[in-house]
C-alpha cells in the first residue's frame, strides 16, 4: 500500500528525524544533568525562533512518518483500503500534527 510518493515521503521524513531525535535526546540529557527547572527551560524556549524551527520540523516529520507507517500496518492487519485507508492516513497525520503543533506553540510562543 505504498506507492513511490508515500515511500519517499516516509524515507525522507526519517532522514529529517534522525538528527533531530539525537538533538532532542541531547537536550533532554542536558536539561536533566544541569538540573534546569521548568521555568528556566521555558525561559530559554519561549520566543526562540531556533527552538520553534527545531521542534516544529520534528513534529512535521513525525506526523508524516507515523501516518504512513500506521497506514501500512492498518492495511496489512485489517485489510482496510481505498477511501477508508486514505482518510485514516490523512486523519492520523493531521491529528499528530495538531497535537504536536499545540505542544510546540506552548513552549516556544510567548
Amino acid at each position: 500500500m505504498l506507492d513511490l510518493r508515500l515511500y519517499m515521503a516516509q524515507r525522507l521524513s526519517a532522514m529529517v528525524m534522525a538528527p533531530l531525535v539525537l538533538g532532542h535526546i541531547a537536550v533532554m540529557v542536558y536539561a536533566i544533568q544541569g538540573g534546569l527547572s521548568t521555568a528556566e527551560i521555558l525561559g530559554r524556549t519561549q520566543g526562540s525562533i531556533p527552538w520553534l524551527l527545531f521542534y516544529g520540523t520534528f513534529v512535521l516529520a513525525v506526523s508524516v512518518h507515523a501516518a504512513i507507517g500506521l497506514r501500512v500496518i492498518v492495511h496489512e492487519t485489517t485489510g482496510l483500503r481505498g477511501r477508508g485507508l486514505r482518510i485514516f492516513t490523512w486523519g492520523t497525520g493531521i491529528v499528530l500534527l495538531m497535537m504536536g503543533a499545540r505542544a510546540v506553540a506552548a513552549v516556544t510562543m510567548l
Binding site: M1, L2, D3, L4, L6, Y7
Partner: peptide, 9 residues
Amino acid sequence: VSGSDGCLN
C-alpha cells in the same frame, strides 16, 4: 514495480 502493489512494500 513502483506502484502501491510493488517493490516498495
